[in-house]
């Protein structure tokens, strides 16, 4: 079997089906969304093809600016906390015996695949008055009576970090599992304490991985669409929630599409940036 460029139609045939599916069901919907974003809205939930930028002009409103800056700040905070805890954790994880690593990975993957609905429900239960952790504090005498901790900004942050943490660990895992152990051994031989070796050898060596992971976790957190509704108050709604709200409940598809196009541009720019950092690591 020689690996050369395919020539005949028969040799090209296998890629026809996947290519068709991806173009019809991803590229075309994407293009349609862009078309809808410049469509003109007709009151009553419909829109007709046009080339107006009224939907984009609404970005300039103070309300939109508030939602956008809150979304970005929240995503940044979630990314920093998740990577801050996730990096040392993953470093240790990658050095555990294989069987223990597999157990942790199964656990983390299970949490990562949980529906946002389930995470939101579980956290609001954990923070509720009847079943929540405040009951524990009452039991040990630290609190007079149980109270509800959700909805609040703290609850939202906890839920989002919970959701982003397994993702962060799994993004960091390949890089940290492949880290050359000789690097740390050398610094230990030269007399560095394990902590010093971690901060002066491992962290600087993985600087680009850390930046790339921060960006990936940031984009991941930007995508959270249910937790702000379930664990936060209306002022904690993010761009993703606003898009869903406009598309489904306000029946304003053009505005929702315009915000989605904007979110795509922000995400693509960030992912591009993270690939750039990731590539430096390889070199």
């Amino acid at each position: 079997m020689i690996r050369r460029a395919p020539r005949s139609l028969g040799e090209h045939a296998p890629i026809l089906f996947p290519a068709l599916m991806l173009v019809v069901f991803f590229v075309i919907p994407f293009g349609l969304m862009i078309a809808v974003s410049v469509a003109r809205r007709i009151p009553g939930g419909f829109y007709e093809p046009d080339l107006v930028f009224a939907n984009y002009e609404r970005f300039l409103s103070a309300f939109f600016g508030g939602v956008l800056s809150f979304s970005l700040e929240l995503a940044a905070l979630v990314a920093v906390v998740a990577v801050g805890i996730g990096f040392p954790f993953t470093y240790r994880l990658a050095r555990l015996p294989r069987a223990a690593q597999v157990r942790w990975l199964v656990f983390l993957l299970s949490i990562l695949s949980l529906s946002e609905v389930i995470i939101g429900f579980a956290w609001s239960t954990l923070l509720s008055r009847t079943a929540g952790i405040t009951n524990l504090l009452v039991a040990v005498g630290l609190m007079a009576e149980p109270q509800s901790l959700s909805p609040s900004f703290g609850a939202l942050l906890a839920g989002m970090v919970y959701q982003a943490f397994p993702y962060t660990v799994l993004v960091l895992y390949p890089a940290l599992a492949r880290l050359d152990p000789a690097l740390v051994e050398a610094s230990r031989t030269l007399g560095a304490s394990p902590l010093k070796a971690f901060f002066t050898v491992v962290v600087p060596a993985q600087r680009n991985t850390i930046v790339a992971t921060l960006i990936m976790a940031f984009v991941f957190a930007l995508g959270s669409y249910l937790l702000p509704q379930l664990l936060g108050r209306p002022q904690h709604w993010t761009l993703s929630v606003l898009i869903t709200d406009q598309a489904i409940y306000q029946s304003n598809m053009p505005f929702a599409a315009a915000m989605a196009v904007f979110l795509v541009l922000v995400s693509l720019a960030l992912v591009g940036l993270s690939l750039l950092f990731g590539r430096k690591e390889e070199a």
Partner: peptide, 21 residues
Amino acid sequence: VLGMAPFILPPVITALGFLSF
């Protein structure tokens, strides 16, 4: 790359694309 994209972008974008489609 097309196959990777929906997974990396915020899910609400793919959802809205399908809704328009």
